[in-house]
């Protein structure tokens, strides 16, 4: 059956169901149980934002709290994956990747290739991404482009609870290393989610709104901004925007994006990451290279600026791509047509 649950609950449910289904699934991370070795209650936290709360009661020692040693435990998750387990490591914030990056991009990502196809590393690294939490420069980054750049990694970023559950189950069952990016400002968002386990295949973008005039491509939180922009465009300007949620950033569903661009002739890419060498650049460049003839206007990018994430709410609010900025970018693609 289906009922409404939050993004956070959907992730918890996916972990719970996969741990129940497959004894090789283990969870490790800082405070994912909470209170390990402390005099108070066991299962004190369930993760810093409570995503894994309650799983310890069901699965016990298959959840491992770790010392504050990202290199060691993320590496251990990768090593265990190469030895037949299906570990899900939680790295609290993607900003902390810096301290364990070698294990991800030199070890997990490369085993299969370096070892001539004779290894598989079914590890999932769950991590929080994104701004809007008033958490400043070291707890707010998107950083997804750093990971999509690396062959051997899969990079996922769901925008809603339904996708979060299906994509996380797919990530756990997948035989390649997956960086699973959870937008911290979506944890409370709810939608209809089946109680049963299900998977969403990687490399399948979701057209969340159909339209004929302009294609808006995004992922994560900014999908919702893009939808807001599309509603405004429809209401005020009678422009029907097609909004595509990439869902999986590597692999990426080029076909769906390019078919849409060929249909609409206009492309706006919205990426909460910084602009240089981002998904936004990637998609704009791909469109210019592959469907140039179909373009009626230059592709537009709406991204965070090339600055660290600021702390003060007044600054952070203008840092994150807004619906207004997306509308303005669409305006640039349509204005060209009118001027022609």
């Amino acid at each position: 059956m289906t009922r409404k649950i939050s993004y956070k609950t959907a992730i918890n449910e996916a972990l719970d169901q996969e741990m129940t289904r497959d004894p090789s699934v283990i969870l490790l991370g800082e405070d994912i149980v909470g209170g390990a070795g402390a005099p108070g209650e066991a299962d004190a936290w369930g993760g810093v934002l409570g995503v894994t709360k309650g799983l310890y009661a069901k699965h016990g020692d298959r959840l491992l709290d770790t010392p504050l040693s990202e290199s060691a435990y993320v590496g251990a998750a990768i090593g265990a994956a190469a030895c037949g387990m299906r570990p899900v490591a939680e790295l609290m914030f993607i900003d902390f990747m810096g301290v364990c990056f070698d294990q991800i991009f030199n070890q997990a990502a490369k085993f299969r290739y370096m070892f001539g196809g004779k290894a598989k590393t079914p590890v999932v690294i769950r991590t929080m991404v994104g701004a809007g939490f008033r958490a400043a420069a070291q707890h707010s980054q998107m950083l997804t482009p750093i990971f999509t750049h690396i062959p051997g990694l899969k990079v996922i970023c769901p925008s809603n609870a339904y996708d979060a559950k299906g994509l996380l189950i797919q990530s756990i069952r997948d035989d390649d290393p997956v960086i699973f990016c959870e937008h911290k400002n979506l944890y409370g968002s709810e939608c209809a989610v089946p109680t049963e386990s299900y998977t969403i295949p990687f490399g399948e973008a979701n057209i969340v709104r159909e339209g004929k005039d302009v294609t808006i491509v995004s992922y994560g939180l900014t999908v919702h901004r893009a939808l807001d922009a599309a509603e405004s465009l429809a209401r005020k300007d009678r422009i029907e925007a097609e909004v595509i949620d990439l869902r999986t950033l590597s692999p990426i569903d080029w076909d769906t994006v390019m078919e849409s661009v060929e249909k609409t002739g206009r492309l706006v890419v919205v990426d909460e990451a910084h602009p240089r060498c981002s998904l936004a650049c990637d998609i704009a460049a791909y469109a210019a290279q592959h469907v140039f003839e179909a373009l009626k206007a230059a592709p537009q990018m709406v991204t965070a600026p090339h600055t660290p994430t600021p702390f003060s709410p007044s600054l952070e609010d203008i840092y994150i791509p807004s619906a207004d900025a997306i509308v303005a970018a669409v305006g640039k693609t349509i204005a060209r047509v009118k001027a022609a």
């Binding site: 339904y162 299906g166 089946p194 049963e196 386990s197 299900y198 998977t199 969403i200 979701n206």
Partner: peptide, 10 residues
């Protein structure tokens, strides 16, 4: 999408 969602359930 509705049919796919159904089909993707274990």
């Amino acid at each position: 999408d509705d049919v796919l969602k159904y089909k993707r359930i274990d």
